[in-house]
Design a protein around this nucleic acid. Structure first.
Length: 507
RNA sequence: GCGGUAGUAGCUCAGGUGGUAGAGCAUCAGCUUCCCAAGCUGAGGGUCGCGGGUUCGAAUCCCGUUUACCGCUCCA
């Protein structure tokens, strides 16, 4: 693990040094947990996006793509539950340094009161035996009544405070009840603070005419709100899917670990609409499909594992994550969730628009169930980079850093290098370059020794290097060096394109 | 968000006790070089995260702030 940590630091440095990923606004000290993709990072990112898009939209005739706006009507987030779920009043205990949801602390206190009341009932039950009239006891026993009444009063207070968003009042309540931290046992609390996980902004330019809107915290809702549009215009029948790649924003309290948890990040997700009752089999189907996709990135199986959700979210009836063995441990990479009809139902309720699908097979209408696959694009990039980053010691004792990533993801596909820049080798190589650049993203490099140029390409993951040498000028053959094996083939210049076409799994 | 540690050239780092910064690699130009970070010559690049304070004088002391890392917490 300590070694992995070192490796992770090296990877972060490598990403910056070679133009993959930079901290955002770095000349101003950066912005916490926001990163920019550089000249090679953006190529890698685009290649992964394209690969995902093809595997979803192109290979599945019943999946179509969309690109929904980041800004959406505020009611969307009411319907989705984000406005409630993403607004937590939090409080810290200064002694134990532990943070709690303030309302949760009060609710725990209320639960304890009910427990005390139940204990009284239990005690009485034992005392009176078979003749015990539980209802009568509950209605008349002073102690039980006191506990229950107090619980009800506090509950009412809490609800009122939450409705008013009265944070100071919430703290006062916690102090009045003498609630202590379960760990430190003290009541040394900070003020209650509101943490809103959604970024908000204003729509409308005049002060009296503005409306608070949110940057989307997930892309899925953009699909749900377009479900009817797609249904009406795409001629799709159930089951069908809608795919989308796009940015989402979360104002995380703690965002760390490089591009693993960013405030602005990109998701690739697909919502699959199915007939209710068939969701379990589609859930299994997509589990299998998605794992196959990850394995096709050339990453070994043991780097992945399943994580079954034990506690399901309110909207799901099955949920599983694909976790990847990052340098800092196994962490979520993709989620496959069976979300039932929760989201469409909620939007039907909030918008008043019927979300029904008419099923010609049974001549009846229903709201489809949804199975979603949602993958973090930035996390996928991190998985590809951390798996590919390799430090090698060669037989002569020298070392090299190689980015062993699949050909189809490599930012630069081929570098064209004159062995030395004289005798016309450079002109010859430039001609090859000018031809190849029409087909692949290429680089031409004549600076420094050939060995150093190979290492440069290794460091950014370029799978092939075409080298023009003295023999080229005599018989029009070049050598092609393969990145991982460092082995070379000598082929006629005219065959370069065919050679690359056969070797490169370019999508 | 709390606590701890740190922030010096693109990267890795050196700069007891305060006197305005160095190395290796990298980058650029030229020479040399016919296959895996070679050699030679030369050049550019930092005011020491940022702001303020103490001082005749601060990278070096103090305060604030920001960023990263570690721990705690959170992750619908």
């Amino acid at each position: 693990m300590a070694q992995d940590n070192e490796l992770f630091k090296k990877l972060v440095s490598h990403c910056k040094e070679y133009g993959f990923i930079f901290p955002s606004s770095e000349i101003y000290d950066g912005l916490s947990a926001v990163y920019d993709y550089g000249q090679y990072g953006v190529e890698l990112k685009n290649n992964i996006k394209q690969y995902w898009w093809r595997s979803m939209v192109q290979y599945h005739e019943n999946i179509v793509g969309i690109d929904a706006a980041i800004l959406m009507h505020p009611k969307v987030w009411k319907a989705s539950g984000h406005v409630d779920a993403f607004n937590d009043p939090l409080i810290d205990n200064k002694d134990s340094k532990i943070r709690y949801k303030a309302d949760q602390l009060v609710e725990d206190y209320i639960d304890k009161l009910y427990e005390k009341a139940e204990k009284e009932v239990e005690k009485a039950k034992k005392r009176f035996g078979d003749n015990f009239d539980e209802k009568l006891f509950r209605d008349t026993n002073e102690k039980v009544k006191k506990y229950i009444d107090e619980a009800k009063i506090i509950t009412d207070k809490l609800v009122k405070l939450l409705e008013e968003n009265n944070l100071a009042g919430l703290k006062k309540l916690i102090e009045e009840l003498k609630i202590v931290c379960p760990v430190s046992g003290t009541s040394n609390w900070t003020d209650v603070r509101q943490f809103n996980l959604m970024f908000s902004t204003q729509l409308g330019s005049t002060a009296e005419d503005t409306m608070t809107i949110y940057l989307r915290p997930e892309t899925a809702q953009g699909i749900y709100v377009n479900y009817l549009n797609i249904l009406k215009t795409s001629r799709q029948k159930l089951p069908f899917g809608i795919a989308q790649i796009g940015k989402a924003f979360r104002n995380e309290i703690v965002a760390r670990q490089f591009i693993f948890r960013m405030r602005e990040f990109e998701q690739m997700e697909m919502q699959y609409f199915v007939k209710p009752g068939t969701e379990k089999e589609w859930f299994e189907y997509w589990k299998e499909q998605r794992m196959q996709w990850h394995l096709s990135l050339g990453i070994p199986k043991e780097k992945y594992r399943w994580h079954e959700h034990e506690k399901l979210a309110h909207y799901a009836n099955a949920a599983v994550d694909i976790e990847y063995d990052f340098p800092f441990g196994f962490k979520e990479l993709e989620g496959i969730h069976s979300r039932t009809d929760y989201d469409l139902k909620r939007h039907q309720e909030f918008s008043g628009k019927k979300m029904l699908y008419f099923d010609p097979d049974i001549q009846d209408s229903y709201i489809p169930y949804v199975v979603e696959t949602s993958i973090g694009l930035d996390r996928t990039i991190l998985s590809v980079l951390s798996n590919g980053y390799t430090e090698e010691t060669l037989s002569d004792g020298s070392t090299r850093v190689v980015l062993k990533i699949p050909d189809f993801l490599a930012p630069i596909k081929v570098a064209i290098l004159p062995l030395v820049k004289k005798d016309g080798m450079n002109d010859y190589a430039l001609n090859i370059f000018n031809d190849l650049k029409k087909y692949y993203l290429c680089q031409y490099d004549e600076k420094d020794s050939i060995g150093r140029r190979y290492r440069r390409q290794d460091a950014i993951g370029t799978p092939y290097c075409v080298t023009v040498d003295g023999q080229t000028l005599e018989d029009n053959t070049v050598t092609i060096r393969e990145r991982d094996s460092m082995l070379q083939d000598r082929i006629p210049v005219d065959n370069i394109r065919k050679y690359l076409h056969d070797k490169l799994n370019v999508i």
